[in-house]
Simulated scan of single mutants.
Amino acid sequence: MRRTADLSELTPVVRAATGRRPVAARRLAGGSKKGVYRVRLDDTGTVVVYLWRPDEDFWPATARRDDGPADPFAHASGLRLFAGAHRRLSALGVGVPEIVLRDERRRWIDADVVIVRDIPGPSLETLLRHGPQPVTMDVLAKALERMRRCPAPAIGKVGPVESGARIGETRCERLVYERALVDLRDAARREPRLAAAEDRLAATLGTLFDRVVPRPPAGLVHGELGGDHVLVRPDGTPVLIDIEGAMYFDPEWEHAFARIRFGADHPRLVRGPLDEARLRCYALAEHLSLVAGPLRLLDGDIPDRAGFTAIAEYNLAAALAFDPDRPVSTVDN
């Protein structure tokens, strides 16, 4: 039986962080690798608690890649990854939640925990449903450009790389290509429509990879930049959340994902130059990842099964219809 936290379990650590008495706690939807809880205090204030422990992680153990701490596509979960990304993004002036308490010694609760100040505003995804958000999108675009220009010591997760960890590969596009083949093969075992197109899509990935001209690693990326991973303060300032996957990697990887998630609003986030061949290769790889990942989660007991099924269906259709010769720097969804 999966165990998630309740108010009584969260009370000691929240008291230690805030000096206030917690009166209500709610697990927020969307987290698949950690527990995210909004806790209301007796003075009507709120904080958000992040918990990392096995019962809070819905990914099946067999679906968790683990090729060393710096591996950019390893399972992005844990307090140390969060802390390393938080430190680097803060130094760049990128909005991230303010940490109130951090504890990996498990002094109050049987989990690694970070408590952050709650962001009172909605997500950028929610705001964009009601119309353009020029101030927020401009600030976010400038932040992404600072991240793009951030020197990359090596490919990989921020904290481990900055601590000296390295992977053997020096080409981002090769990592993406090899991972995409694994995602394709894995998803094809679960989805007959993909199995019927497996050989064609594998050949397309090879063609796209061959078109990419090698270059040194460049920049810092969030890794899963969608509007649901950006909260907005009342003054319009964006704040990045779910930052454990932040890594030194090609900015085209970021924008291939953001293009899917932001749709027609995505061009407002582009400031610096992007390589079209990389975007094309990474776009198909992202679609395959967004089929394979949800299908792996659906093997387990992840909540919101309809939501993950919809993600897989959308990206399956996009992968099957993908044209390797069509530019992806303009929006087509």
Score class of each variant (00 low, 15 high):
174 R>E: 13
112 D>M: 02
118 D>T: 15
190 R>V: 02
121 G>Q: 12
19 G>I: 13
152 A>T: 09
19 G>N: 03
129 R>D: 04
169 E>V: 13
298 L>Y: 08
206 G>V: 06
36 V>G: 14
265 D>I: 00
44 T>L: 15
3 R>D: 09
235 D>W: 06
79 L>C: 09
218 A>L: 07
317 A>F: 00
199 D>A: 07
137 M>Y: 01
285 A>W: 02
297 L>P: 07
155 I>W: 14
208 L>C: 04
317 A>G: 04
200 R>T: 11
298 L>H: 09
231 L>R: 06
127 L>Q: 03
212 V>T: 09
259 R>D: 13
299 D>T: 13
117 R>W: 12
261 R>G: 07
221 V>N: 11
272 G>L: 02
220 L>K: 00
204 T>R: 02
144 L>K: 07
324 P>M: 10
169 E>S: 04
272 G>K: 03
37 Y>W: 14
309 T>G: 05
178 E>A: 13
49 V>D: 12
27 R>C: 09
66 D>K: 10
294 P>D: 02
283 A>H: 14
57 D>V: 03
77 S>L: 00
179 R>S: 13
281 C>N: 10
315 N>K: 08
50 Y>K: 01
61 A>N: 08
225 L>T: 00
155 I>D: 10
201 L>S: 07
331 V>G: 02
271 R>H: 05
219 G>H: 08
142 K>P: 11
58 F>I: 00
110 D>T: 06
156 G>Q: 04
30 G>D: 07
10 L>W: 15
61 A>R: 15
130 H>E: 05
208 L>F: 09
133 Q>T: 03
209 F>H: 11
237 T>M: 06
266 H>V: 01
100 V>W: 08
83 A>W: 15
173 E>I: 10
62 T>F: 08
269 L>P: 09
54 P>T: 02
309 T>M: 06
155 I>F: 14
332 D>A: 15
120 P>V: 00
67 D>C: 15
303 P>W: 02
289 S>M: 07
189 R>I: 12
215 R>I: 06
331 V>N: 01
15 R>P: 05
268 R>Q: 09
109 I>L: 11
13 V>F: 08
168 G>C: 04
197 A>N: 05
20 R>F: 15
305 R>P: 08
36 V>R: 12
221 V>Y: 07
134 P>C: 01
108 W>Y: 14
134 P>V: 02
